[in-house]
Design a protein around this nucleic acid. Sequence first.
DNA 1: TTGTAAGCGTTATCAT
DNA 2: ATGATAACGCTTACAA
Lengths: 342, 342
Amino acid sequence: MSSEVTLKEIAESLGVSAMTVSRALNNRDNVDEDTRKKVVSKAEEMGYTPNYVAKSLVSNKTYTIGVVIPEITHAFFPEVVRGIEEVTNKSDYQLLLTNANEQFIREKKAVNALRSQRVDGLLISTSIGIDDFSFYEQIINSGTKLVFFDRCIEGLGASCVSVNDRTSSYQITEHLITEHGYSKIAHLSGPPNVSIGKERMEGYLEALEEYELPINNQWIIEGGFQKIKGYESMQSLLELPEEEYPEAVVVVNDPAAFGAIKALKDFGLSVPEDMAVVGFTDDIRAPLLETPLTTVHQPAYAVGQKAAKKLIAAIENKDEPIENIEVLTTLKIRASCGCGNF
Amino acid sequence: MSSEVTLKEIAESLGVSAMTVSRALNNRDNVDEDTRKKVVSKAEEMGYTPNYVAKSLVSNKTYTIGVVIPEITHAFFPEVVRGIEEVTNKSDYQLLLTNANEQFIREKKAVNALRSQRVDGLLISTSIGIDDFSFYEQIINSGTKLVFFDRCIEGLGASCVSVNDRTSSYQITEHLITEHGYSKIAHLSGPPNVSIGKERMEGYLEALEEYELPINNQWIIEGGFQKIKGYESMQSLLELPEEEYPEAVVVVNDPAAFGAIKALKDFGLSVPEDMAVVGFTDDIRAPLLETPLTTVHQPAYAVGQKAAKKLIAAIENKDEPIENIEVLTTLKIRASCGCGNF
DNA sequence: TTGTAAGCGTTATCAT
DNA sequence: ATGATAACGCTTACAA
């Protein structure tokens, strides 16, 4: 950035001190109105932009928030970022965005870089492969303000904003049971060490228990969040003898559900006649499938907003409490569960 | 960010000077190997993170790049950001991301904030309503490194990375003419003051001229980039007497094409039988429509990569030339143009 | 090899 | 109302 105009230069060209210029430009009340005007117009003329780097060094505040997301192309996250942006923009914080690409090594590197940049706080959604919880434990203990969103690590003393995953998973499973009378329901799960994977599994299990349906371990396949993982999980499921096929399957998210549906198709089976499929996310493509996908709509924008608000509150207010904030989802009933008229 | 450990504190606890600690931690060659080890382990123990704010003040370099995009939910941009991220991550630059939400006022505000943060360079895709070119002219003249991407402002002395819009628009129009024999082709355009709006219009016109087809001003409707704009433009077009309807229409981008198709449907017309429609973007939803959309695939990731590479080159190399870089598109032929077998 | 002093651009504090 | 000085955490330049 070419050599920029400084307070001192403005001061010299005006024959006053740098302090006066600083005061004038920051609208302090103890400056003569005349000099203030002179300073402001001179600054304008010289093309002055305040140097936040220097400001930050003095104030120990950067007005900057670090955001770490695991996967920027998964449509959910850009929407979350938009929510974050909306809030930070109003409060005049800037966003340092990093994409960990689902790699915990990159996530760590990003967090360290962000800390070196002295961001005022961190908004984090962890990558799938995370194993080293002590990393975040140290950071939180050091007093760094941190709010997790969507993919949370619990019990570390940081607030967390997420969707009511367990309840939503319970509800969509319940829908399959009560509205359609399915009793043989499978689950293509995510990794259990990621909160959303665990929670969605639990909601599914709770619903089966509540309605006293058999829990069949052959129907619970651990996979991942991408299309290919759903495809593979469904392939495993279809290795069962045909008479042991479930009637319906709850998939951990929509991309994985797309993969699962593809696998069914490749296998010559149709949705929902041979097997009903429901997802989780309400991906932009969900309503456009040949058989539109029944799924759980996630208010990504609201998640972003709430996480950002919580973080800014924690930054600006010493004793903001630690909270787990749940944002409510809604069921999107479409055709893939067997509801014909959508 | 709680009180952080400083060089001085490490120095004191070790009985050496801050300079020695600085040298040791930065792997300068003039430090005793023994003291270096002591310093490094002490720094680790005390949880030291270098203060980049202070570093930047000295070096006049922040290792930070400001990115301004007009619309984060338009899938094209997250993909561009991923490309940018991939490059900056390797070169150890951080990304300050701002979303202008298609509002030029917010864009200006964002750029000013970014300059105050003393980013080393700017990556910008302008919002639609832009009118004040002098704003960027000043910034570029002040020596700030700036690369435009996708939505460029030309003639200001900044490099630009974009898709070969005019050629692509020419090609998809040509496809309608030569593969389908359409001679009555309309264009629902974008705003002409945004480069992609202008370029796509020009490509369309060039193709008509090349094949000596009539240019009918009633078939050229100025609109915008969102679904609703496409809907409205198509509504205008359908106000013509039925015998003056075009056979095909080139829409400025996919979201607008979705709107146009919706309007046709609401009007009782079908695609491509009554009117063929082609788009531009290859939106993730394009292949999933009832009649999959023929469109131009844009290599968003490559746009991001090239823009980031160009900017970093400009930052690190005094006389990096100003260039217009074009990234090549590919046609995605699907059913909406009348190619039946897709 | 190590230390000292000055300075990066700003603001808090005390003085005038 | 305005100015002088020190300080924020670090590095460069020079000295020991």
